[in-house]
């Protein structure tokens, strides 16, 4: 008799938990309830997480970022899928380009006082010298490899999700000397990314889901962080990619690059023109 009672109670608790979780999810979903980011001052340390994909996606992403203002986005974290050697190399080249551009700017306006400079410029490194305190690159396992058997997919998906949590929590400083003073300061400064930017490789789905889960449980230190922007690939002219279809209602902003896609996902698709 008491066993039945316990079972009933367990089921009730289960239902209650499910309802609470669903309500919480609805509450945080950007497509359901739009929240405004809290205002902040430009030049404060910020962490931007960029999800890179295979050839086309990565090429587009660096075209989108070509005018990135490093004074406003002081730390960049790049996420690369396992087995993609090309994207990590491109990220290093891009960072070298940013740092060369900064040197040029400095040469043009030498009168700028050192104290007025954003934090990035103080700990800048010579071009080509990675690792640097200004960026990090993390390789995460794929949720599902091509031709992977179906039964092992849940295991690899969980592995991928765990890797996403870890990359979200803090930049990977492993390649740097941890005794360095600047290093210690940077470790304390940069935790969860303020902004996550992606243009649709498979890994992006994992990263955005991890962000949602963190927000759902209200993880400490995620307040006013982990805002997500998705840019649909320029190659998508008349229909969304699979990642786009999954994420259209889950990200804070959903940008498309062709007029035919304007307003997709129940009016979520924003068309600002071509971004690449």
């Amino acid at each position: 008799m008491p066993l039945v009672h316990e079972l009933k109670a367990a089921i009730l608790v289960g239902i209650l938990l499910f309802v609470v979780a669903s309500l919480r999810l609805l509450y945080i979903l950007p497509s359901v309830r739009k929240t405004c980011p809290a205002p902040r001052k430009r030049g404060a340390p910020t962490r931007l997480l960029i999800v890179l994909g295979s050839g086309g996606h990565t090429a587009e992403m660096f075209a989108i970022l070509s005018k990135l203002d490093t004074a406003s986005y002081t730390h960049r974290s790049y996420v690369v899928s396992e087995g993609d050697n090309f994207s990590a190399q491109k990220a290093i080249e891009f960072e070298d380009h940013l740092s060369a551009r900064l040197t040029k700017l400095e040469a043009r306006s030498p009168s700028q006082s050192p104290s007025a400079r954003p934090p990035e410029q103080k700990n800048r490194q010579a071009p080509g010298k990675s690792p640097s305190l200004n960026y990090d690159i993390t390789i995460i396992p794929r949720a599902r490899r091509i031709h992977q058997s179906l039964w092992s997919t849940p295991i690899s998906a969980v592995k991928c999700l765990l890797a996403c949590f870890s990359v979200l929590r803090s930049p990977s400083w492993t390649a740097l000397n941890s005794a360095d003073k600047e290093m210690v300061a940077a470790k304390a400064t940069y935790t969860y990314p303020d902004l996550v930017l992606t243009n649709g490789p498979g890994t992006a789905v994992c990263v955005v889901l991890a962000c949602l889960l963190l927000k759902c449980v209200g993880a400490r230190g995620t307040q006013n962080k982990l805002r997500t922007i998705y840019v649909e690939s320029w190659a998508r002219v008349r229909g969304l990619s699979l990642s786009g279809k999954i994420l259209v209602r889950l990200v804070d902003r959903f940008l498309v690059q062709w007029e035919a896609l304007k307003g997709v996902g129940g009016g979520r698709g924003e068309y600002l023109g071509v971004l690449v």
Binding site: C36, P37, A38, P39, R40, K41, R42, T46, L48, S72, Y73, D194, L195, L197, N224, R227, I229, D252, R253, L255, E270, L272
Partner: peptide
């Protein structure tokens, strides 16, 4: 869009 989401004013 990025500045919007960051709350830069």
């Amino acid at each position: 869009v990025m500045d919007d989401e960051m709350g830069f004013v």
